[in-house]
Design a protein around this nucleic acid. Structure first.
Lengths: 252, 252
DNA sequence: TAAATAGTGTCTGTTAGACAGTATACT
DNA sequence: AGTATACTGTCTAACAGACACTATTTA
């Protein structure tokens, strides 16, 4: 049943017109931490529809790549970051299929959640994409509140909110938060990530006690930057936190 | 900037050939409980590729519907169930975009997790789909182990596994498990659902104590079926369980 | 010395986990 | 009566939450 006859057989089983076709894009919700604030990478649209409004970066999925491959390629293209070197966390978020979400034509977007590693102070370089008049980092909670910006293009505000909720939820029971930091980090830095994403303060002492057994101790210590004791450097493990870390009331 | 000129403008901004197009399907991971065992609805393929192998039900997303709408329509068509009446839980699971997952052409599948309400004994009716030679319910863990069946068509084994993991994980911190039962249910029935999905026994006493405050008490009681005290009937709420219910070692 | 940060100790209230015990119904 | 199921009580160990306290560094 596996000769060329059978092949001929099923290759005829679909004819053009039997099925609707759609354009497929990979959209990116790229998060990074700066100054204790959760930031998202956005581009400003140069063309209609939603001209001059902010949008998530993204682009078409090529004929021979998966959506995840496309997400990696787009990330490199739109931000100039090379994923080969940097430890970048990418996971599929959700797929948005509303038939009218793009007025031009049927576009289905597979959204991806991307976490960039930073040392908590310097932003990773962001270069403008070819089809965007500008690109930059924006504080997530400001964008979601619509401060100084207005809504995002298409249904990107909803995608961004879904991305934030995914990240915030996953941080309760995994150590994903470490993906927003360099390979070695202190518990203070990690706590800063939690506070930035959850938009709520956490008591330092209890945070240390809860997280320490979930991480790998490198044995190294930091030199204290502006006064204070040197902090131990940890490395992330893929452990599940059980029981999860309790999240305070959401401050969105 | 919003006149018909601008409209003309952006309608020209994409020409055929600028972007690759794909066929979009909605695939269903339909779960139900019978006899304390988690079952999944599968169809047997009548055509190549993967002829005569078991597959998840699904079908093309129409030009004017979202993937979620298509999932609801397919569920009604393939199982003969009317979702207007029954309380059926549907949520998007993930999207599978590997360029070679269907040898005939580029097919992107948005998988959905579907939970059918049963009383724990009778199976919901399943009628064969038009393009499938047979349809039925199969124990999930048997299928995943490949007992008496072999692997599923396409990448459907992975989709099924993802669906199981999503459900099992969500049951730790929500009351989704109640979506596999009728509107009013006893704690024993709910515990049966947990045991079927997690494939592990749970101590009845502690389960009752943990779950009772998460549910709405109807005040009613069951008549005891085969000896034993009458059980209180509860209704599901959308509460988050905090802290989550601990899951025993996975028995997959 | 003063200030800032890291990390530990301590106390209390809550809960999981284990399991015994009691209550209620059917056969 | 015997049995099966529902539910509550009890005990212990572990943990969260709150907060004080010590230690180590820089200015």
């Amino acid at each position: 049943m596996k000769g060329s006859n059978a092949e001929q057989d099923y290759l005829e089983s679909y004819r053009p017109g039997d099925y609707p076709s759609v354009a497929l894009t990979a959209d990116l919700v790229v998060f990074a931490i700066t100054g204790g604030v959760l930031q998202v990478a956005l581009v400003r649209r140069g063309a209609h529809p939603f001209k001059d409004q902010l949008a998530l970066p993204g682009g078409f999925v090529g004929p021979r790549e998966s959506a995840d491959d496309a997400a990696r390629r787009e990330l490199a293209e739109e931000t100039g970051l090379d994923l080969g070197n940097l430890p970048v966390h990418i996971e599929q978020l959700a797929t948005y299929t509303g038939p009218l979400r793009d007025p031009r034509m049927r576009v289905v977007s597979v959204a991806h959640l991307v976490l960039l590693a930073t040392d908590g102070s310097a932003l990773p370089e962001v270069s403008a994409a070819s089809d965007a008049a500008g690109a930059g980092w924006y504080p997530v909670y400001d964008i979601l509140h619509g401060h100084h910006s207005g809504p995002l293009a298409f249904d990107h505000s909803m995608i961004l909110l879904d991305g934030l909720n995914r990240l915030a939820g996953k941080m309760e029971y995994t150590t994903v938060a470490a993906q927003l930091l360099t390979e070695e980090f202190t518990l203070s830095q990690l706590r800063t990530v939690y506070e930035a994403v959850w938009n709520a303060p956490l008591p330092p002492g209890n945070f240390t006690r809860k997280m320490t057994p979930q991480l790998e101790d490198t044995g190294k210590k930091t030199r204290a930057p502006g006064g204070g004791a040197p902090a131990a450097l940890f490395r992330a493990t893929d452990r599940h936190i059980h029981p999860p870390l309790a999240r305070p009331r959401t401050n969105l």
